[in-house]
């Protein structure tokens, strides 16, 4: 299509995140040494990336469609909590706990989606509401039912192998889930005809609806996907760590947004890619884990993340402008 394949890479939404990832890896190799790239280290930051990435992709898709989901912060706790309550405290089979956790994800996702679609209240506010409501509900229920804020869970071996186990040197099994889920989303968003709809909704909702796209159903589906993904990660964390605290993970909200924005998704919608979010997530994980391999105190990692976020946004803006002004050369 174009004469210069390199130039065409820079016009893609994930260009900025790839450059950012390479820069961050180079930074930690220089300051922390190659140990950072040893298999044992790779396991630690890939595991971190997997936990974040499974949630970041659907959150990113919501952002591409012009919405935001903050409720993932308490949905991840809900996933852990419900699994531990049902299968730990009440001792029901683990499959029931998993289904209950994911079912609750579907429920909250539909609630978020319906509220946003029906009331036209900005999703920022709606999901801020469900974030706190679900967090409060969990904590309250937990104390009423168990009398404590911590629940333990001993999952059977099969469930551990599937969702909560390390293999090799510190590789969580969740990494495989993350890669499979990413591949599925790449297909859904960039190859199936439905992906086009997400971009159209984020670009111009009224035109999208007039073109016959079921915009409301699509928005609700995306909210369900993000809530279920958060519940899924929470569920596997409960199985891995065997104990669950009933406190919401507020920093997860920011972390997903950072991963998504570093990954080249436009905050106002209409632009981005799944591969970009994938790279953005790895970048974020590398920064938070890479600091341990350097001589810096780990408290500096937030500074790096802040600078990274601003740098990534500026870089993504530049690349997007390149994509917009691009016209093939006259032959």
């Amino acid at each position: 299509m174009t004469s210069m394949p390199l130039a065409s890479i820079f016009r893609r939404p994930e260009a900025g995140s790839l450059v950012g990832l390479l820069m961050v890896v180079a930074f930690f190799v220089v300051t922390g040494g190659v140990e950072f790239l040893y298999l044992s280290s790779v396991g630690s930051w890939l595991s971190r990336a997997a936990n974040l990435g499974i949630i970041a992709i659907p959150v990113g898709l919501l952002m591409i469609s012009g919405e935001l989901d903050l409720s993932v912060g308490s949905m991840i706790t809900a996933g852990s909590m419900i699994t531990a309550l049902v299968s730990g405290f009440y001792g029901l089979p683990i499959i029931v706990g998993i289904m209950a956790a994911l079912g609750f994800g579907i429920l909250v996702g539909m609630l978020n989606g319906y509220l946003v679609v029906r009331t036209h209240v900005p999703s920022f506010i709606v999901t801020l509401g469900t974030l706190f409501a679900v967090a409060g509900l969990l904590l309250g229920l937990n104390i009423v039912l168990t009398g404590t804020t911590t629940v333990t869970l001993m999952a059977p071996e099969l469930a551990k192998t599937l969702f909560g186990k390390y293999f090799g040197q510190g590789f969580q099994v969740l990494i495989i889930w993350w890669i499979v889920i990413t591949a599925a989303f790449v297909f859904f968003v960039h190859y199936s005809p439905y992906g086009n709809w997400i971009f159209a909704i984020g670009g111009d909702k009224v035109s999208a609806r007039n073109s016959g796209i079921p915009t409301e159903r699509m928005t609700i589906l995306l909210f369900v996907l993000s809530a279920v993904s958060a519940a899924f990660v929470g569920m596997s964390q409960a199985i891995l760590f065997q104990a669950v605290q009933a406190t919401p993970q507020m920093t997860l909200i920011f972390n997903t947004i950072i991963a998504v924005v570093v990954g080249g998704v436009l905050l106002t919608g209409g632009f981005g890619s799944v591969i970009g979010i994938f790279f953005g997530t790895i970048t974020f994980a590398v920064v938070t884990q890479g600091i341990y391999y350097t001589s810096f105190d780990q408290t500096w990692s937030n500074l790096i993340i802040g600078v990274l976020l601003l740098g990534a946004v500026l870089m993504n803006n530049t690349f997007r402008k390149m994509a917009l002004t691009y016209a093939p050369k006259k032959k």
Binding site: N196, F199, A200, G203, D204, S207, G270, F271, L324
Partner: peptide, 9 residues
């Protein structure tokens, strides 16, 4: 007036 199309598609 502005084409009603999607600028970033």
């Amino acid at each position: 007036q502005f084409g009603g199309t999607f600028p970033l598609m």
